[in-house]
Design a protein around this nucleic acid. Structure first.
Lengths: 162, 162
DNA sequence: TTCTTTGCAAATCGTTTGCAGCATG
DNA sequence: CATGCTGCAAACGATTTGCAAAGAA
């Protein structure tokens, strides 16, 4: 999923119809590295197209995902995240603030065999659970100043996926 | 999580109380390779302890998972699966029948660096999406006999996680 | 014109929570 | 006897569905 134009063409080629809503969704998605959920994307677009419904956003996203234009995965927080980068790569998931980033360097770069344990394998999802830089700092600070009054930046969701 | 006895001791050591329900749950879990969900486990135990509530099952499972005795992950079907095998390994997820198996051979056996992209990484979840042997056969059969009357063994959930 | 998409409201469904009573350590 | 556990019913929240009106090809 590189450019909106390109995407529009492929959607048309598949017999899909290109509505203003979808164009908007495509635009919001291209180059987005925040791995948004349907709801997040919907919220983000409310400003531009107040009438846009959640249903529509989900329909568009699932369409694209089914067509392979979008990567879809669950980070362990119970929500479905979408990633416009369809190239194989791992995701960094912060177990504290739920933020998600793309893993930069090669990881699990095994070339993904066609067959593993009798399964014919098509795709891989790799999640690396840990603490993002920000939360590492926050945690360190908490340890310096134990539980007490200044519980500002520090509630711990604690939601590891593994 | 090797034996029930061992597990019971560790739970006690942590200040937990060992109830008949939990023992039952532990037993059902030890050596289970089916990666059950809370509901599946609950259903399975209904026969042995009809009064066992779903709430209790979830409480026990999440306790164990939080204590690191159990691996917890979402396969892309929106449900939370539990795996008593806490050693790092990939999961084979069938996109057609949703079945899950442990990947046998080393995959993504990168030794899991402590730091990736600024994140301090603790755990990894690796899912390999594909077709299980059974579904490969089923699909092949469908292709031989295209859509029509005999749609017996062949509805396609189509729920890839990536 | 035809067939997809939109968008509202309502339904789903796995999981969590509040709370009172009970059992373990 | 103190605390953690159980289990019921109700709450939750993300996603999906039914359906009629609107719009793209």
């Amino acid at each position: 999923m590189r450019s909106v134009e390109e995407l529009v063409q492929r959607v048309r080629a598949r017999g899909g119809k290109v509505t203003p809503q979808r164009v908007l969704i495509y635009q919001a998605l291209v180059g987005d590295t925040s791995h948004p959920t349907g709801e997040q994307l919907h919220a983000r677009l409310q400003g531009l197209l107040p009438h846009l419904s959640l249903t529509t956003v989900y329909a568009a996203l699932n369409d694209l995902a089914d067509a392979g234009e979008l990567r879809r995965f669950q980070a362990g927080d119970g929500q479905v995240h979408y990633d416009p980068d369809t190239r194989p790569h791992a995701e960094l998931v912060c177990v504290r603030c739920q933020r998600i980033d793309d893993a930069p360097a090669p990881h699990g770069q095994t070339p993904l065999p066609d067959v593993v344990g009798g399964y014919r394998v098509f795709a891989r999802t790799e999640l690396l659970h840990g603490l993002c830089p920000e939360c590492q700092r926050a945690v360190a600070q908490e340890e310096r100043a134990p539980a007490g009054g200044t519980a500002d930046a520090g509630d711990i969701p604690a939601q590891a996926g593994a």
